[in-house]
Each structure stands twice: as structure tokens, then as C-alpha cells.
């Protein structure tokens, strides 16, 4: 865990993040991300065995809305923003795999 990120690891992360990176970028990011990770790894040495995680600063619960209609957007406006649209829908290039 403490070794710097390899180029292969960066390439794997880029795939997960849907980024297309060239060789030069992969090398550069591998170095820069490794440096950041080495710095932040300091917190792994803190003893937090008894400390619960915080994902939100405040303990709000049960924020709910009533099941009531509100306005939708006009379809023309929605599709006007789209890079490609057809038959009232967003058009995308072919999809290679089914949704997981």
C-alpha cells in the first residue's frame, strides 16, 4: 500500500474513471499521485481504532418531502442541451455491454 502508484495502476484507475490518458500523462500522474498519497498516508499511522467515521458534519435525520408533484422541464429545453438527440430522446453511440 505504501509503494507509489505504478503506471499500470494509474491506467486501471483512469479506465474506472472513464479517462483516456496517453503514456506521458500516465507517467506524470503516476508520479504526482504517488507524491500526494505518500503525504496523506501519514494519517494511516493515527490510532483511530475507537473512532467512528464521520461522513457528514451534522447529525440530521429523516429529511423528507411530501409525495407531491412539482414542475417538470419542457422537453425541447432538455433536449436542446443534448449533444445529440433523436425522437424525443438522447442519442448515444452503441453500447457494448448490458447494464451491470
Amino acid at each position: 500500500m505504501n509503494e507509489p502508484l505504478s503506471k499500470d495502476a494509474v491506467a486501471h484507475i483512469a479506465r474506472l474513471a472513464r479517462l483516456e490518458l496517453g503514456e506521458a500523462e500516465l507517467s506524470r500522474f503516476a508520479g504526482q499521485l504517488s507524491a500526494v498519497l505518500e503525504h496523506v498516508e501519514a494519517i494511516q499511522r493515527l490510532d483511530t481504532a475507537e473512532v467512528p467515521p464521520t461522513s457528514h458534519p451534522f447529525e440530521l435525520v429523516n429529511v423528507l418531502r411530501d409525495d407531491e408533484r412539482s414542475a417538470c422541464l419542457p422537453r425541447e429545453a432538455v433536449l436542446a442541451a443534448a449533444p445529440a438527440a433523436q425522437d424525443g430522446r438522447f442519442r448515444v453511440p452503441r453500447i457494448l455491454g448490458e447494464a451491470p
Binding site: 500500500m1 494511516q44 493515527l46 473512532v51 467512528p52 461522513s55
Partner: peptide
């Protein structure tokens, strides 16, 4: 190792 630990540090 990273995210959960960072959240604990947030508590700290």
C-alpha cells in the same frame, strides 16, 4: 485504508 480512515480523522 484511505477513505474510511479519512472519515475517522474527520471525527478526530
Amino acid at each position: 485504508a484511505y477513505y474510511a480512515q479519512a472519515q475517522r480523522v474527520r471525527t478526530v
